[in-house]
Amino acid sequence: MDQSSPLAALGKPSIHKKPLIISGPCSAETEQQTIETCTRLAATGKVDMLRAGIWKPRTKPGLFEGIGTKGLPWMKKAKDLTGLPITVEVATAKHVEDCLAFDVDVLWIGARTTVNPFSVQEVADALRGVNIPVLIKNPINPDIELWTGAVERIAKAGIKDIGLIHRGFSSYGNTDFRNAPMWHLPIEMKLRLPELPLICDPSHIGGRRDVLQSIAQKAIDLDYDGLMIESHIDPDNAWSDAKQQVTPERLGELIDSLIWRAETTDKQEFLTALERLRQQINHIDDEIMQLISNRMAIAEQIGVYKKENNITILQPSRWGEILERGVKKGAKLGLTEDFIHKYLDAIHIESINRQNNVMNK
Rank of each mutant, 00 (worst) to 15 (best):
M1S: 14
Q3Y: 09
Q3T: 13
A9F: 03
P13L: 04
S14N: 02
I15P: 00
S23R: 06
C26M: 06
A28P: 07
Q32T: 08
Q32V: 07
T34P: 05
R40C: 03
A42L: 12
G45K: 03
G45N: 06
V47K: 03
M49H: 04
I54D: 00
W55C: 00
G62E: 02
F64Q: 02
E65W: 06
E65S: 15
G71K: 02
M75W: 10
K77P: 02
A78N: 01
D80K: 07
L81I: 12
L84T: 01
P85A: 07
I86C: 10
I86K: 00
V104A: 03
W108C: 00
W108F: 14
G110Q: 04
P117Q: 11
A124R: 02
D125K: 12
L127E: 00
G129Y: 07
I136K: 00
N138I: 06
I144E: 07
E145I: 15
T148G: 05
A150T: 08
I162W: 05
G163A: 03
H166K: 03
H166L: 09
R167Y: 04
G168L: 11
S171N: 06
N174R: 07
N179R: 10
W183L: 04
H184C: 05
H184M: 08
P186V: 13
R192N: 06
R192G: 01
E195K: 15
P197M: 07
L198K: 04
I199T: 08
G207E: 11
G207Y: 11
G207S: 10
D210I: 13
V211I: 15
L212E: 04
L212Q: 03
A216P: 01
A216W: 05
D221P: 00
D225S: 11
G226M: 05
L227S: 04
I229G: 01
I229T: 09
I233H: 05
I233G: 02
I233K: 03
P235K: 02
W239R: 07
S240L: 12
A242D: 11
T247M: 06
E249Y: 06
S257P: 02
I259T: 14
L271G: 08
A273V: 05
A273E: 05
I281R: 13
I281P: 01
N282F: 10
N282T: 10
D286V: 14
E287Q: 15
I288A: 09
L291I: 10
L291H: 10
I292T: 08
I292L: 12
S293E: 15
S293D: 14
N294R: 05
E300M: 14
N309E: 08
T312V: 07
T312Q: 10
L314H: 15
S317A: 15
S317P: 00
I322N: 12
L323G: 07
K328T: 11
G330N: 13
K332R: 11
K332H: 11
L335H: 12
T336E: 14
Y343N: 08
D345A: 13
A346N: 14
I352R: 03
N353P: 00
N353A: 13
N357K: 15
